[in-house]
Amino acid sequence: MGLISGLLLLPLAPVRGVGWVADRLIDAAERELYDPDVVRGRLAALNDALDRGDIDLAQFEREEERLLDVLERRPPSLHRPAS
Rank of each mutant, 00 (worst) to 15 (best):
A28V: 07
H79T: 03
R31L: 09
L33Y: 14
R74M: 03
A22P: 00
A58V: 15
R80E: 13
V39I: 15
E61T: 06
F60W: 12
P11Y: 00
L57C: 01
L67N: 02
R31E: 03
Q59P: 00
R52T: 01
A29C: 09
S5A: 06
D69R: 15
D56V: 12
R24D: 04
R24K: 08
L9T: 05
R24P: 01
L33V: 05
G41Q: 06
W20Y: 13
V18F: 15
L9A: 06
G41M: 10
L68Q: 15
R42G: 01
L7D: 00
A22E: 15
G2C: 00
Q59I: 05
A28P: 01
L7I: 07
H79D: 04
P14Q: 08
Q59T: 15
D23I: 11
L8A: 07
L7P: 00
L67G: 02
L46M: 10
M1C: 04
P76N: 11
L71W: 04
E30C: 01
G6K: 04
G2L: 01
R52G: 00
G17V: 00
L12W: 12
L71Y: 09
L78K: 07
A45G: 09
R40M: 04
R42E: 15
A44H: 13
A45M: 11
D54H: 09
